[in-house]
Design a binder for these strands. Structure first.
Lengths: 250, 250
DNA sequence: ACAAAAGTGTTTGCAATACACCCATGG
DNA sequence: CCATGGGTGTATTGCAAACACTTTTGT
């Protein structure tokens, strides 16, 4: 352990990293972006993308930088609609065999993104259904199974009380697109008519574009943009809507 | 900035601290524990209690240790009913003039605690109404006004969806005691009758002791213990209950 | 070419429930 | 005076059915 003597006196210092749980919905399934590690420790194992926080950047900036390095996302906060928020910090001694590393985990939600580019250090990156990972937590390096579990739970809760579900949809999107996001993330089937009533009634959630999308088969769907509201009032609760059997993924 | 060379290569390391927003309800008002700083920087200013994370302890342990050092609380997680949870991390460069310090903020909720003991480094500690602090954020050292604001918001949300409000009440407590907690934290008045229905109907929130408390005036109140449930189903939403005028504190 | 069927999105109707607000009663 | 319980009108929800719009299939 190092000791910092700048102006703090004698204080043990630690490496600080950010790790990202980047989610999207593909094939009606919640998926997370994983990278295959190209060096020890956990060489060849899969892990959440991440990296060390630099000396002159704040935590959010480090997260955005890593996000951009791992994907084609320009940057969070712009018009891409991508959602980025801090999840929590994980700092058990021994969570990284190289030494004391405290990591700040971030949660990112985005629409069905282009196939991710290889990271700067040429690691292969790909989407994986979270359901498989939750069933086999030992697949992931470090304590990333714990982080992933917390991230999934956070995402599910966010859908209940906020309008971030729209971040999973490329605009413009239909009410059915949005409903399939909820069904994929929660893993349950929802009643289409009640879902429509709730999301259209909620102030500032959806903004009609007036356009329509003609599908391969079936009635055209009205299209919407994400509204300006961040909070979903009233909320869409899992507990009260989980009356129907779970939807089969894939 | 330091550089760690143990096994991580050349990585800038930082000091890691924990800061605590310890809340209680006194005099029907939400109050937070502050300490008066005994050394530079911000000498003489007030701040949230906290300290550096040690080399061999995890983040939660550091928070519990600081909590114990600042108050008489034995430790969180035991039968004291005290609630402790991670709030988030704050790591802007420059948030601490001594150097790069990333702090992990914790939220603690407890019953009307005994007057806090002086900290180990003889700093004076005392309860302060959060309302005053939110109105004068420059009072607090570092970025603690930001942390406090986030902590208050988290506490308010926690009361909606979980049963942690009981952590503010010394057992046994009455339904009115619990209602006054909600009113103090949310800053609004609640309908006693509806409140009773909701909290008594919620599975596992309250556990009747069979005892009564005879007040100086008025009908005796039935007494309860906290039940085993952590989640409050259905939730008690602020937005739908905030129809009545705010309650005057103090 | 026309009609029927099938698939998806959208709207409507109703019973059950939950809720806010108000009043009554009890210690 | 305060805790507790009940009642009522309104809003929301779960459930189900019908309706609208389009493509595909059958003859």
């Amino acid at each position: 352990m190092n000791v910092q003597r700048d102006g703090i006196g004698a204080v043990e210092t630690m490496a600080v990293a950010v790790d990202l749980a980047i989610f999207t919905v593909r094939d009606d399934t919640l998926q997370v972006l994983l990278i295959e590690r190209g060096k020890a420790p956990f060489l060849g194992r899969v892990a959440l993308p991440g990296g060390y926080v630099r000396a002159q950047e704040n935590l959010d900036h480090a997260a955005r930088r890593e996000l951009q390095e791992e994907t084609d996302i320009r940057s969070a906060g712009d018009k891409s609609g991508l959602h980025l928020e801090q999840l929590g910090s994980y700092g058990d001694p021994g969570r990284d065999p190289r030494g004391r590393v405290v990591t700040v985990a971030y949660l990112a939600l985005g629409p069905n993104l282009p196939t991710p580019v290889a990271g700067t250090d040429a690691r292969h990156a790909y989407w994986t259904p979270v359901q498989e990972l939750l069933a086999a937590p030992d697949t992931l390096a470090f304590d990333h199974a714990t982080i992933l579990r917390d991230a999934v739970e956070r995402a599910r809760t966010r859908l209940e009380y906020t309008t971030v579900a729209a971040a999973f949809c490329a605009e413009p999107f239909s009410v059915s697109d949005l409903r399939r996001v909820y069904e994929a993330v929660w893993g349950i089937a929802l009643d289409p008519s009640n879902f429509r009533r709730k999301v259209t009634r909620a102030e500032g959630f959806l903004e009609a574009t007036g356009e329509q999308r003609i599908p391969e088969v079936g009635r055209p769907a009205a299209l919407y943009r994400k509204g300006e509201a961040e909070l979903l009032i009233p909320p869409l609760l899992r507990s009260t809507n989980a009356t129907r059997p779970p939807v089969a993924p894939g």
